[in-house]
Design a protein around this nucleic acid. Structure first.
Lengths: 365, 365
DNA sequence: CTGAAAGCGCTTACAG
DNA sequence: CTGAAAGCGCTTACAG
């Protein structure tokens, strides 16, 4: 009696209409050949009694649950909300539910989480893998998200292209000495972004890369990155590979009395909610997560259908090569042309910008 | 054949052992009285063949799916990752899965999302309600998260107490003019936090409240909040009711050349990942989300069990009054004693603080 | 302590 | 175009 269904099941409808349950099933699913007129009556009755199909029964019968699993490396990952929202929506659009699992940064937990999902009988799985994880055969259709250079099974935005847009844009503003700020060289996403940035900057721009992870090994977590010194060395643009790093750069520079964008420019990646709220708002690159999600779900659906028809069994996988989704540069206030005279870190104008920095004038390139 | 189960079901195990399926079921669940020796053999066989129970079949039989629904007002809510992670973990600990649903800030979508979950046969639901939403009878056990002043069915941290800790701390530092920064006066959470802050500050401290929503109505989204002017008026501490607002305050002040915490202090709420990464790192208040989640799940379990035993049917609800979870003040670098001379917004020392602002020395009060 | 039987609600060949 | 029947894999009274 834990169930709160309005009560009516197929048999009830069938009885009420004096037909068989099979006919009700066929009428409702539109599969079997039922007379249009009967279909109408069945539909009407179903609506009348507030019929809600039992997904459990259907799952038992068909072997498909209509549920997908979403495995995240670390739910506290700032990009997670965007991913989860996009996936949930894309799945709902094709009638699927989404069960979440968190691997808490731990690879053992990731395996555990995957197994729990499998035990729940999910029809397919979306995995945002932990860095350095190889997703092996998990025994159900899998789509891997967000690591474009991983071969096979992968759906992702074109991070390299996003990087190129940033590089080109900074070069066009006249920056000649750019510091790229990444977290870890082992991240495929960050590698792709860096490659793009460098390509976009071109060979005439001097550029160096700073890994926050390495600085932290020496100075501890969330330490200063020494950006004031870099600015003094003549770097006029700081291209962070995530908004988290960009925010860190922005506040560190401001803290040191270096005005953004008057003295140096800062940009990020991901268009997280925080990037538009800070002052000055951050120039960033947005990936079309909705499209990524749609592609991932579509790929999964293809495999699931194929699995159901032919008997390819467990070996089936999402086979399409990385689907590429364009990225979009959002130019906001944290970037601008460099000063002709490279500034030291002392003299500047605190009130150089007008207090009203509405983002209404956002430019999309 | 969409199923990838290792194959063996209860009948297979029963056959292999020459016993009945009922016995296998009883042995595995530990319910029926089966001889210890037989239990051993059944367990061994199950492990040997890699038996995975069919949750679908169990659900059909028992009317319980072992799945909970998590309804979120807006997945892009910065607090969502923490909530989702805590809930997923707490649910997994009691053998439950978590299906997510996003109401995308829309109240119609929220209803839709709730219905979708119900149709999937979830055993219970956790709702982080949209502001101003009244969660009526949804036809399954419900626990409401995060709005402490909502009566009944609610589990949440003690936001009022968190506010009081901030207020007391700022007063103890010597601040005598404090600006509270909230988003919207309609938020129950924010109201509670404000009440606490004011109480903690005591009657001798002058304090004013700024609502970002109201400022934005005039100046547009993400506009400046006019904090530099407030600093000039003598406000020395800015107590934001969320880290998002705190970050906005921090960068706006820095942007205007006002040094934090040398000239003014800034604090937030929620301990989001961003608050520890910026410079100076933000003093904030952390709620013990794990405990909130545990309480919520426990309350839900209680109702679900009761529902299964007695036949209280659909009316059953989480009845316990707001469970109170303590909040924890994390003192970081964005707060300090006020300057004796209230500063104007011009002269200050850009390099007053040492570049290495490791958060290792975090103080917990 | 163990087993035979019924049934959860659906879908799917197979007859008619 | 419609129906009778079997069965997905489990659990739960009920006998023995």
């Amino acid at each position: 009696m834990a169930n709160v269904r309005p009560g009516a099941n197929m048999s009830a409808i069938a009885a009420a209409l004096g037909v068989s349950a099979a006919t009700v099933s066929n009428a409702l699913s539109g599969k079997g050949r039922v007379s249009p007129e009967l279909v109408q009556r069945v539909r009407a009755k179903a609506a009348e009694v507030g019929y809600v199909p039992s997904l459990a029964a259907r799952a038992l019968r068909t072997g498909r649950t209509g549920v997908l699993g979403l495995v995240l490396p670390d739910i506290s990952n700032p990009l997670f909300p965007q991913i989860a929202q996009a996936i949930e929506n894309a799945a709902a659009n094709v009638g699927y539910g989404v069960l979440i699992a968190d691997s808490r940064g731990d690879i053992a937990t990731q395996t555990e989480a995957i197994n729990r999902l499998i035990e729940r009988g999910i029809d397919g799985m979306l995995i945002v893998p932990r860095r350095g994880t190889r997703i092996s055969d998990v025994g159900c259709p899998v789509a891997v998200l967000d690591t474009p250079s991983t071969p096979g099974n992968t759906v992702s935005a074109d991070h390299w292209d996003g990087g190129m847009q940033v590089g080109r844009y900074l070069a066009s503003l006249g920056h000649r000495k750019v510091l790229i700020i990444g977290r870890s060289p082992t991240s495929n996403v960050q590698s792709d972004r860096i490659g793009g940035v460098k390509c976009g900057l071109g060979s005439k721009v001097e550029c160096d890369t700073l890994w926050s992870e390495k600085v932290e090994e020496i100075h501890g977590p969330n330490c200063m990155l020494g950006l004031a010194e870099r600015a003094a060395q003549g770097f006029t643009a700081f291209a962070a590979l995530s908004d988290l790093l960009a925010l860190r750069a922005l506040t560190e520079l401001q803290h040191a009395g270096i005005s953004v964008p008057d003295m140096v420019s800062v940009s990020g990646f991901d268009d997280s909610i925080w990037s538009s709220v800070v002052s000055p708002s951050l120039t960033t690159v947005r990936q079309d997560m909705a499209t990524v999600a749609d592609l991932a779900i579509a790929a999964l659906m293809r495999v699931i259908e194929a699995d159901a028809d032919a008997d390819d069994a467990a070996a089936a996988k999402v086979t399409s090569d990385p689907d590429r989704v364009p990225m979009q540069l959002l130019v906001r206030q944290s970037t601008g042309a460099p000063k002709t005279a490279v500034p030291g870190a002392t003299a500047f104008h605190p009130h150089a910008r007008h207090p009203n920095n509405s983002t209404a004038g956002e430019v999309k390139q």
